[in-house]
Design a binder for these strands. Structure first.
Lengths: 346, 346
DNA sequence: CTGAAAGCGCTAACAC
DNA sequence: GTGTTAGCGCTTTCAG
């Protein structure tokens, strides 16, 4: 089986087999109405020519490309790339292809051309895997009603009439906070993610609510905002120690920043978890090998992605079979707490 | 500007504007031979209809899709996803689209269908971003001669008549080893990556050569093989300490495994870098915040990717303009050493 | 069971 | 400047 330099066409195959192009079409589409002999002969020629039908021509006439568009941003971060990983695997598994667009910035606002580009290539659906930040969902309100293909969002605040698959970030924050309380920590600080991120806000609210339900006072200098990076975490933790001298533990909004918190504690000569307990968020693979190993909230981005793909393909297929349209819904997956040395003092 | 539910066609625009489809075509392609008035009228209708030409139909007739195929594997790892990040950004910048295929395994052997699928969608070129492992380049020998579109590989051993963009892994390994020697370490162990990976072998050879050029003996129990993960690094370093008791430093083939080496040293109560020096490879962003901060070899996967995209597009465009074909070449980028606390004892 | 005709949405090549 | 014809590679529809 070789890949011909000049790809052969259905016409050439038909001529060589002495049949019409429709007959070849029937063979490659496994239609029943071809005599066994004809089918065999045609298949022989197909093999011999290394013939492969043009997905392009097919998409054009069938109005269906078996291709999904995926829009992402910040692939250099672990979260988005893990998500893309899940999408790519699941899509492949279900026999679709993937057209990838990466936004130059998380908050890119001229998304119309991106969408146009995807639609002009006849994608059957679009997965929007860009985190919800600031006003970067504003376009949704005007555009969605007249949108021509199914659209599924990954990780954003629930909305009416939109299909969404998310991890419950609020629950994750609650798990982290409760755990620290159970371990006897009473002065829990927080290093937040950038608060224009929906996810960061969710985690922070959970921390606040966790404190207040435990009857603990919350002050504005008990938390500092970071930007997810280890570098920002280093700055944040420094400031937090200053602002909150009797702090005995920190819930950090992601593992990279938590790493810096561990690092800062070492520099100060503090013992972890005796002097200061630390809990992260994400459960990146390395977090089990931090020093000490990091307690963190496990969120399965990979699985979120797979569920999103299943959902959109379900919607696509149902539309194509003219079945009942599937109502948009929010699917929320639950994170879990992974307890390790950085917080366990009981 | 709205996205119409039913996408309009060139024919509809032509009718509405009272011209032929050809004229509309000229307008959307910015051809000069249209009168200003006609052009304006047509553009008005285009705006009004929200008309967007079908990239599919265009690709079909022009035999050119302005789409690149990219084949990757192991997106859950930092390296491949960083590479994809660079590819996606550069491709976007140059006005192309990206069709993404992720192999289920690094060593998947039935790559013909993958290639077929890409070619059947008329990609203008393919970037092969799967690491070279075991025999997973075997297909190249038979297939390449008759390959119909440009193909550029990222990170593999140089070969005749193949376009390749790589980081010089051997040089990286030499930088790491020399640095440890300069710092006065004389008993340098090595935690290798999986040796069916070309990159892992390069790094290891450099370590061996570095030792022997310094007149140091090398023994087979001075190194252990890992699989890039922190978990494997933890096992490897344990074994290495056993096998090589008077070891005073380790060159670890990537940062994740180096993290485990740091961790193991802490557990053993060893001081870093006084008792044991450690150097990693990759320079992941977190490595600056390990405890202590990690000396490592910086390889710019992002830049490799960008160069690869530039190269393939250069080849594509030249082919299309019927210029001199661009000869395949190997482009090798140089890594640099980033010195931090884990190895600096002078 | 098989083929001929028409056309998906667009553009190349030519006419006028 | 503009329109007509033909056709990219395939499938749909309908005739036989």
């Amino acid at each position: 089986m070789t890949i011909e330099h000049r790809r052969s066409t259905i016409k050439e195959v038909a001529q060589a087999a002495g049949v019409s192009t429709q007959t070849v079409s029937r063979v490659i589409n496994d239609r029943p109405d071809v005599s066994p002999e004809t089918r065999q002969r045609v298949q022989g020629i197909i093999q011999q020519f290394g013939y492969q039908p043009s997905a392009l021509a097919r998409s054009l006439i069938q109005r269906r490309s078996y291709t999904l568009g995926v829009v992402t941003a910040g692939l250099k971060y672990i979260g988005p790339s893990r998500t893309l990983n899940g999408i790519a695997e699941k899509v492949e598994e279900l026999g679709y292809s993937l057209l990838l667009k990466e936004l130059p910035k998380f908050t890119a606002n001229n998304i119309v051309p991106i969408l146009q580009s995807l639609l002009s290539r006849q994608v059957d659906g679009i997965i929007w895997a860009v985190p919800e930040i600031g006003e970067n969902r504003a376009w949704l309100e005007d555009q969605l009603p007249e949108f021509s293909v199914p659209l599924v969002f990954i990780t954003m605040a629930p909305r009416q009439n939109v299909s969404i698959v998310s991890v419950d970030n609020y629950l994750g924050g609650r798990l982290a906070t409760s755990h620290l309380l159970e371990q006897g920590f009473r002065h829990i600080g927080h290093i937040a993610g950038p608060l224009d991120w929906w996810e960061a806000r969710q985690r922070m609210s959970a921390w606040k609510d966790g404190l207040s339900e435990a009857g603990l006072e919350f002050q504005d200098n008990h938390w500092v905002e970071g930007n997810w990076s280890s570098a920002s975490g280093a700055q944040a933790v420094e400031k937090l120690f200053e602002q909150y001298p009797n702090m005995d533990s920190i819930f950090v909004a992601n593992d990279q920043m938590a790493l810096s918190a561990l690092n800062a504690a070492h520099h100060k000569g503090l013992m972890i978890p005796e002097d200061i307990g630390i809990v992260g968020f994400d459960n990146i693979p390395e977090s089990a090998y931090f020093w000490p190993s990091l307690t963190t909230v496990h969120q399965d981005q990979y699985n979120v992605a797979k569920v999103a793909v299943e959902e959109i393909i379900k919607i696509i297929e149902s539309g194509w079979q003219e079945l009942e349209p599937i109502a948009p819904k929010s699917i929320v997956l639950e994170p879990t707490l992974v307890t390790r040395q950085s917080s366990l003092r009981l």
